[in-house]
């Protein structure tokens, strides 16, 4: 099974220098290392889940501590956060389609769907930055009240995760273009999409607990 060593860049179609341990598995699980890394990433997501749960706990405890300042009901712009939600849900779908096409070994389609996902992610971050700037212009800043500190930190931490995901996905797109689909790039596509779907899960709770319950 072992192919002879090439630099990956020289072997356009991928498996140069990659020792395939399990040819019968889905492509992302074909190396021992890949299988370990996918499980490890699941475990990391569990820790990230706890991180967000602590931020949510802080937000919920402090959400009524507005110190006479603006409340969620006054600040949140319904069309804006609804648009953010639909954009992120759609990007989770397009990311999933990239995984789907990866299993069919369609390199160009994987790249295409990942680019769509990145663009949707960028527009999400853009809308969020616009929302933050807008609020800050109205005097609703991080320093105004405990509620706003908790709001900006919780939503901002999610936004930072999305931004990091955009950079990461871009790096993987470059690697896909250079090396094609092989067990290593496939594992990377699979993992970055796990991360992306996970951020969607977190957003659903931001949408529900922060925004919907904020405008109720």
């Amino acid at each position: 099974m072992t192919t002879t060593a090439h630099a990956p860049a020289e072997n356009h179609h991928g498996a140069g220098h990659i020792h395939v341990d399990y040819p019968d598995r889905p492509v992302e699980y074909q190396t021992e290392d890949g299988a370990l890394k996918i499980l490890g990433f699941w475990v990391f997501l569990a820790t990230d889940l706890i991180l967000f749960s602590c931020l949510f706990a802080t937000f919920i405890v402090l959400r009524s501590h507005v110190d006479g300042g603006p409340t969620g009901k006054e600040l949140f712009d319904i069309p804006s956060f609804v648009a953010e939600t639909f954009i992120l849900l759609t990007s989770s779908f397009t990311g999933g389609l990239a995984t789907f096409e990866m299993h069919r070994d369609k390199r160009n389609r994987v790249v295409g769907w990942l680019i769509v996902t990145v663009l949707l992610g960028l527009s999400f971050v853009g809308l969020e930055v616009k929302e933050f700037v807008h609020m800050a212009m109205d005097g609703a800043t991080l320093q105004r009240s405990a509620f706003l500190s908790a709001f900006f930190t919780l939503v901002g931490t999610h936004g930072c995760h999305v931004s990091l995901g955009i950079l990461w996905m871009t790096g993987i797109i470059i690697q896909l273009v250079r090396f094609g689909i092989n067990p290593i790039t496939a594992r990377k596509v699979f993992i970055v999409n796990m991360y992306w779907h996970f951020l969607d899960v977190v957003w659903v709770f931001l949408f529900t607990v922060v925004y919907l319950m904020g405008v109720m």
Partner: peptide, 26 residues
């Protein structure tokens, strides 16, 4: 722990109000 430390750092570095006495911190 990461969250507790980060929020305290935000209080100190950026003037947030998670754990201050003023402005509703707890």
């Amino acid at each position: 722990l990461t969250v507790a430390l980060a929020l305290l750092l935000l209080d100190r570095a950026l003037g947030a109000h998670f754990f201050t006495i003023l402005h509703g911190g707890d």
